[in-house]
Amino acid sequence: MTTVKHGFPWNHLIGFVLSILLTLFAVFIAFETDFSKTVIMWVIGTLAIFQALIQLFMFMHITEGKEGMLNVINIIYSIFLALVIVFGSIWVLTSGHSAIH
């Protein structure tokens, strides 16, 4: 039985506050600024990735346990697949004659 007492969950609190702030910031960027649409998408996209990382590291403790390294490799590989699927599909289906407009 584990006897180590964990103190106040600062990690979680910081992660929570950060994710709320990042969400609000994304809304601010999207609706209250005059950046071009491309810039807005890049900025809020980056913010989304930061939020995902907060969840992965501060809430899900991805590096924890004996297989921490494997978990990281697994998630990196999955992100690679996600990028291939998303950008590959868009590229294949919206360029050339196949594009439906």
């Binding site: 346990g65 494997l70 978990n71 697994n74 999955s78 996600a82 990028l83 699927i85 998303v86 599909s89």
Partner: peptide, 23 residues
């Protein structure tokens, strides 16, 4: 560990849904 790998599969599943949505 198995569940983490399952989450990898879930990432693929959702990215397919996203890809289709973008298209």
């Amino acid at each position: 560990l198995g569940f983490w790998i399952f989450l990898g599969a879930e990432i693929v599943l959702f990215s397919t849904l996203f890809a289709s949505y973008f298209v």
